[in-house]
Write a protein that binds this DNA or RNA. Sequence first.
DNA 1: CTGAAAGCGCTTACAG
DNA 2: CTGAAAGCGCTTACAG
Lengths: 351, 351
Amino acid sequence: MIKRKITINDIARELSISKTSVSFVINGKAREKNISTTLEKRVLAYIDEIGYRPNHFAQGLRTGKTKMIGMLVEDISDPFFSAVARMMEEIAYKKGYKILYSSTENDTQKAKDLIQMYRIRHVDGYIIAPPPGIELELKELTDDGFFVLLFDRTLPGLEISNVVVDNLVSSYKAVKHLIDNGYKNIAMVTLLSDQTQMLDRKAGYVKALDETSKPYLLKKIAYHDKRENCIKEIQDFLIANQEIDALFFATNYLAESGLEALKLLNRHIPGDIGVVVFDDHYLFKLFTPSITAIAQPIKEISEQVIHMMLRSISDPKIKKPVKTLVIPTSLTIRGSSLPRTKINGDFGLKD
Amino acid sequence: MIKRKITINDIARELSISKTSVSFVINGKAREKNISTTLEKRVLAYIDEIGYRPNHFAQGLRTGKTKMIGMLVEDISDPFFSAVARMMEEIAYKKGYKILYSSTENDTQKAKDLIQMYRIRHVDGYIIAPPPGIELELKELTDDGFFVLLFDRTLPGLEISNVVVDNLVSSYKAVKHLIDNGYKNIAMVTLLSDQTQMLDRKAGYVKALDETSKPYLLKKIAYHDKRENCIKEIQDFLIANQEIDALFFATNYLAESGLEALKLLNRHIPGDIGVVVFDDHYLFKLFTPSITAIAQPIKEISEQVIHMMLRSISDPKIKKPVKTLVIPTSLTIRGSSLPRTKINGDFGLKD
DNA sequence: CTGAAAGCGCTTACAG
DNA sequence: CTGAAAGCGCTTACAG
């Protein structure tokens, strides 16, 4: 009843042929190796009948390939990363690949450890949203012939392909949108981080403000800061800078803390303070007021990344040129960034 | 420079000992096999120096173990499942295990395919939030000696351990809370599904209503229904049943559609309709009003599941008894379910 | 067109 | 205390 441990040898014996022929058929090399169509069909039929599953280890030991791709993200429970992971998994699965995910928590050492673990498991390729400080490890990977693809951000000075969104332009447009809607003192809440995506997002903010006569109002928060501290810091920032009439959040989770800070301070959105967030969230449209956000095209990012990866893995000979793919975002305008004039017209009474 | 493909043989040759001894040391069997401490240290030091990584395939081929656990959830981008996955990954990683996740989308065939894929990859154990209809496959897995653990829900008639929350009591308390707060016509929006967690959640609602003289008001929605349809159906339901003054949502994502439906119909929460959701979300407290929700203890669920799994894997001889672990939840009371009297007092003016 | 054989890198029973 | 050897299940160069 229990059909375990059927090997290629069993099949060969049963069909009275050599296991070489069986292997050729299994690997679709029947034609190439001049196996007769009759034999091929007989093998295929038998395999199907007994439900043969090739041993992954034996295959891996011989070929060195696992059909597994290692993926490192900041946090797999973050809505952006989990959506990307889900999408990539789906595409990869159809091509017979399995994606392994892990969360680095933006921690250099943890990322290094995880890369080691993936090496031990012999993944065929690496998709990484890198924390700072892993340049050497990445260099080692590519030197050893593995295909590595960065996404969401990149590490300067590395010859590694990457897929990112247009962070600078996206931020610029978002802040410009606030300016156009009459907000005068726009602050940005961002991470205390030199990662490329953060620098670009800040650069977009700076560029937009440079077109006005207003000074930058920047609040930087450490990634590992506890939620309560984060809320507290934003509150203090808002209290110390009473002139602020709009906040631009560099990430989803900063916005969470920021929105909570605003709630605690009893500041009304957008009456007291306009809000725009980098990275949309499916619940933002249900907020009161709904939250304006920069939407990253999750589907396109995922498709591009996974296709680049699979293409490179399947043609290991052809050295693909290092490529940077920049994908545009879109600004989803909602209630939290209404024109100030309109606010005064519509809601002015209640203040 | 590039240190690839160092094998146990290279080490043996380099140190002029047999590879058996090397293997014993690597696997921590030095003591047991009477390897001298001197030799052990020498091997360990050398391994460390050259950065030896054992070949996972060769190990797997010999031992049949992979230190990988296959996990099947409904949707890895769902906030509950991604939080659980993240937590489990962390615990497992510390014990040297890697968790592979996949999303079944509650689809029977997809789940079967994924189980096949995990079998091919020889995962050591299975953690599954099962869709309906995979009883046979699960039975086959356990018959073949694999350890399987269900969570979030279970499949009746199977002799498989599982970890679930106390769905019935949680729902009962949530609905009771609405009743106690003066809501008179409480409807439940749930899935068109016979899965155990859904049946229990419904049973809790029914039990609470049975203590009143009110009829059940149930709206069932198909899992794969498109978002827009779902919203539309809830709208129609609310229009057809004008007496409804509170909604109890059986899941997070149903609540999303429901909240959108309420917004579109311009029904105020909790003034027109009270709301309670099964499954908390970190943004619910930032809604206006904040949303009352049943919080599943993600940390406890994850720990229990992964510990049960690791214990069973590491002691395969000891047949663990089939065990059902029921974990209590907590009701986080927020603004969306305020007492009706209080609403009339505080907010009555605006209606 | 087909098959015998080597070898991937490990683990472990067995002999000494 | 230590080592030679078999074998896990596959792939593929090579011989016929």
